[in-house]
Simulated scan of single mutants.
Amino acid sequence: MSSKVEAAISAKGKVLIGYLPVGFPTLEDSIEAAVALVESGVDILELGVPYSDPVMDGLVIQEATQVALANGFKLPQAIEAVKKITARVDIPVLLMTYFNPVIQYGVDKFASDLAAAGGAGLITPDLIPEEAGEWLAAAEKYDLDRVFLAAPSSTDERLAQAVQKSRGFVYAVSTMGITGARQDVDVAAKSLVARLRSVGATHVGVGVGISNGTQVREVLAYGDGAIVGSALVKSLNDGGIDSLRSVAEELAQGK
């Protein structure tokens, strides 16, 4: 059993992880945008599954996912997108999804279909390790990575559980609250990563608030992966794929 994400981090040392929602502005456009990210220096793709109640997402991502839903996005399209992207680029592709759609789809079937499409695994922002038994079993069965979130407010016990149950990396949420690009990455991130290391984390991705190459460099001084979402979604929304490429290339200079 091998982790595509861990292999990518081990090979590169430090990685840029780029987030885009599936289906924005259209399904085909989101596939092209994801491929453009890889061509522009992103090492791991994080594809967001549009959801009707995205409680952890900032306004930029919320608005993009609402466009996808209004265009008729359905969960099987996320699997379709993964399949088309992995046919064109050779990097790990993770889906980030609230867990209720996976339950509705069927946890084992979803894991099986994701693996068959070439997906690397799932990031599950609203699923805690203690309640993830069915997903963990399916992930083990189909050799998928599972990424749990850790926040500055988490107890050491909760951080240890996230580290123990994650495979690929642990997702350190650098600021309290919802996602969105910020001028300064919260100092809490550095402390959180140190706490995760102290309970055994070997690979930590840091997200929420990174918007430029300088911040990527700052985060990679102590984290293994810099996760960028809102800044990329905004660039795609404002200037299309050309703008997205430009922003991704600037971010990649921080590696």
Rank of each mutant, 00 (worst) to 15 (best):
113 D>R: 02
113 D>Y: 10
114 L>W: 13
114 L>H: 09
116 A>P: 10
116 A>R: 14
117 A>L: 10
119 G>W: 09
121 G>A: 01
121 G>R: 00
121 G>E: 06
121 G>K: 00
122 L>H: 09
123 I>K: 03
126 D>W: 04
129 P>N: 04
131 E>I: 00
132 A>W: 14
132 A>C: 06
133 G>N: 10
136 L>H: 13
136 L>R: 11
137 A>L: 13
137 A>R: 15
140 E>F: 01
140 E>R: 11
146 R>E: 14
147 V>T: 12
148 F>C: 02
149 L>R: 06
149 L>V: 11
150 A>P: 05
150 A>R: 04
151 A>E: 10
151 A>C: 11
152 P>V: 07
153 S>K: 04
154 S>M: 03
155 T>L: 03
156 D>A: 05
156 D>V: 08
157 E>L: 06
157 E>P: 07
158 R>E: 13
160 A>V: 13
161 Q>F: 01
161 Q>Y: 05
163 V>E: 02
164 Q>E: 15
165 K>Q: 12
166 S>L: 07
167 R>M: 01
168 G>M: 12
169 F>R: 02
169 F>E: 11
170 V>N: 02
170 V>F: 05
171 Y>N: 03
171 Y>H: 04
171 Y>F: 05
176 M>A: 15
177 G>I: 03
177 G>W: 01
178 I>C: 02
179 T>N: 08
180 G>Q: 05
184 D>T: 15
185 V>H: 07
185 V>I: 15
186 D>P: 03
187 V>I: 13
189 A>F: 08
189 A>G: 14
190 K>M: 09
192 L>C: 01
194 A>W: 04
195 R>T: 11
196 L>R: 01
196 L>N: 06
197 R>N: 11
197 R>C: 03
199 V>F: 07
200 G>D: 05
200 G>R: 00
202 T>V: 14
203 H>F: 15
203 H>V: 09
205 G>H: 12
205 G>K: 05
206 V>R: 02
207 G>I: 09
209 G>P: 08
209 G>E: 10
209 G>T: 12
212 N>I: 06
213 G>C: 00
217 R>N: 14
219 V>N: 08
219 V>S: 07
219 V>I: 13
221 A>Y: 01
222 Y>D: 14
222 Y>S: 11
223 G>R: 00
224 D>T: 07
224 D>P: 09
225 G>M: 02
228 V>N: 04
229 G>H: 13
230 S>Y: 13
230 S>H: 12
231 A>P: 00
231 A>I: 03
234 K>Q: 13
235 S>A: 15
236 L>T: 03
236 L>E: 02
237 N>T: 15
237 N>D: 15
238 D>T: 10
239 G>L: 00
240 G>Q: 00
240 G>A: 02
